[in-house]
């Protein structure tokens, strides 16, 4: 079963962001376990652009994310594991779950 791990970082970082080595080690662990499906880390929020198409079909492009949020999506993994407990274990190992950040685990819908 596939789960997406959404890595949320707090907008006001209370502590030091995780060291790059920790992320490299985590990424390697996910790949070595044979559960990696996909994953990316996202560029800074200041580079985000939001697109909406209104009723008349006009494109509305705005700078930044659609709404003010306390947490910012910093990246994601999609992993393939047997059940939620295993997914939660991998979420807990993720450096993004520490230092005021959080990892949201969402099952990928299967059709």
């Amino acid at each position: 079963m596939k789960y997406m791990l959404l890595i949320q970082s707090a907008t006001s970082q209370p502590s030091e962001p995780c060291a790059v080595e920790e992320w490299i080690a985590y990424d390697k662990a996910v790949r070595d376990a044979g559960i990696w499906v996909s994953g990316h880390s996202l560029a800074d929020l200041t580079t985000a652009t939001t697109v909406q198409v209104d009723e008349s079909g006009d494109r509305v492009v705005t700078d930044g994310p659609f709404a003010e949020t306390r947490e910012v999506l910093g990246g994601y993994y999609v992993i393939d594991v047997p059940d939620l407990d295993v997914a939660l274990d991998w979420a807990a190992r993720c450096p993004g779950a520490r230092g005021g950040g959080a990892v949201t685990v969402r099952p990928v819908a299967e059709f």
Binding site: M1, P82, D83, L84, D85, P107
Partner: peptide, 9 residues
């Protein structure tokens, strides 16, 4: 749907 397992931790 989230496949919470039937298992003793």
């Amino acid at each position: 749907q989230a496949r919470i397992p039937f298992r003793v931790p």
